[in-house]
Design a protein around this nucleic acid. Structure first.
Lengths: 159, 159
DNA sequence: CGAATCCTGTTATGTTATAACACAGTGGTG
DNA sequence: CACCACTGTGTTATAACATAACAGGATTCG
C-alpha cells in the first residue's frame, strides 16, 4: 500500500488494472497500444505522479533505449488523445488517468507543498463550465480544470 | 467598436478604463506601475487577445527598446501577481484582465477555430471546484479554468 | 551619508515542444 | 505478387517558452 491521491490503496493492483483497461479499450476501438506507448503508460502508472516529458525520456534512456524527444511526445499524444493519460497544463507534465474507461473531463488538485497531484470528481465542475460557456453561446469540447493549494497532509504539517 | 470577447464594445474606452483602474489599485496598494509594466499592460489591452511573452517582446523591440526576455517576464509576473493580467496555461500566453478590480478566479473560453480568448463568469465554477476539493480535504488557493471549443461566430461559420 | 529595497539591464542557459524527412511494417486491392 | 495507403518509428535539427545569476541605477529612510 502506498499513499497516493491523498489516500491509500493497493498500487500494484491499480497498475495492472489500468493497463488491462487500456488494452481492452484499444482492442475495442482498433487502437494500437504499441510497446513504446505501453511502456510510457507503465512508467506513469508506476511513478504515479506528474512527470515531465523529458523525465519520462530519461527513464526510457536509462532502460537502454536511444530515445529522442519526439518518441516520448508521440507516445504521450496517443495516451492523452485516447484518455489513458492527462496533461497537467499548469505543470507541463503528464499523469496516468485515475479513472480509465469512464468518460470524464479530468480535474486536478495540485499541492504546492509536496507537488503531489490528484484527480478529483469533476461532474459538477464540468456542468458549471458548460453552463457558463453556454451563456456566451460557446460550445465546449475540452476543459482544463486544475486547482492549486494544500493537500491534507501538507495542511496538517503547516498547522 | 470592435468584436471582442465574442461581443461588441467600445475598445478605446475599455483600455482607458483598465489602465486607470490599474493605476488606482497600484496607488492604493503601494505597487509601482512602472513604465515597462504599464507598457506591457497597454499592449495586452490594445491587442485584446492572448499573446505569448516573445510576441510582447517583439512589440517592445519594434518600439526601439533593446528588451530581453526577462524584462517581459518580470513585467508579466507583476501584472499576473496583482491581477491586471492572466496567464492562459493551455496557450502559454497572457491576456489583460477583463474585470480589473473585482476579485475573481479567472475562467476562460478558448476558441479553437479563430484562437480568440474570452473571460467567462466563474462564480459557480469556482464554487464547484472548491466544493469538490473540500471533499478531499484539499484547500484551494488558485485555480486554472480553461475551456476549449467553438465560439459563436465559428460555430455559425461551421454550420 | 549609508543601508536597504526595488526595479532594470544583460548574458547565458535551462526547459518544453515540434518540424521535417527517411524508412519499416501491415493490410488491403487489383 | 506488385502496388498503394496508412500508421508507427528513428533521427536531426530547431523552435518556443522560461529563468538563473550577477551588475548597476533609483528611491527611500534612518
Amino acid at each position: 500500500m502506498d499513499t497516493l491521491g491523498f489516500t491509500t490503496h493497493d498500487h500494484g493492483h491499480c497498475i495492472a488494472q489500468a493497463l488491462s483497461s487500456a488494452e481492452e479499450t484499444c482492442a475495442e476501438q482498433g487502437l494500437q497500444l504499441t510497446a513504446q506507448r505501453r511502456r510510457v503508460l507503465e512508467i506513469l502508472l508506476q511513478e504515479h505522479r506528474a512527470m515531465g516529458a523529458y523525465e519520462l525520456l530519461d527513464v526510457l534512456r536509462s532502460e537502454g533505449q536511444g530515445a529522442q524527444p519526439p518518441t516520448v511526445y508521440r507516445a504521450l499524444d496517443f495516451l492523452v488523445t485516447n484518455g489513458f493519460a492527462h496533461k497537467i497544463e499548469r505543470l507541463n507534465a503528464f499523469v496516468a488517468c485515475a479513472h480509465p474507461g469512464e468518460r470524464h473531463a479530468p480535474a486536478f488538485l495540485i499541492c504546492k507543498g509536496c507537488g503531489s497531484v490528484a484527480e478529483m470528481p469533476s461532474r459538477d465542475i464540468a456542468r458549471a463550465v458548460r453552463e457558463a460557456a453556454a451563456g456566451l453561446a460557446f460550445e465546449v469540447s475540452r476543459m482544463v480544470i486544475e486547482a492549486e493549494g494544500a493537500c491534507p497532509s501538507c495542511r496538517e504539517a503547516r498547522a
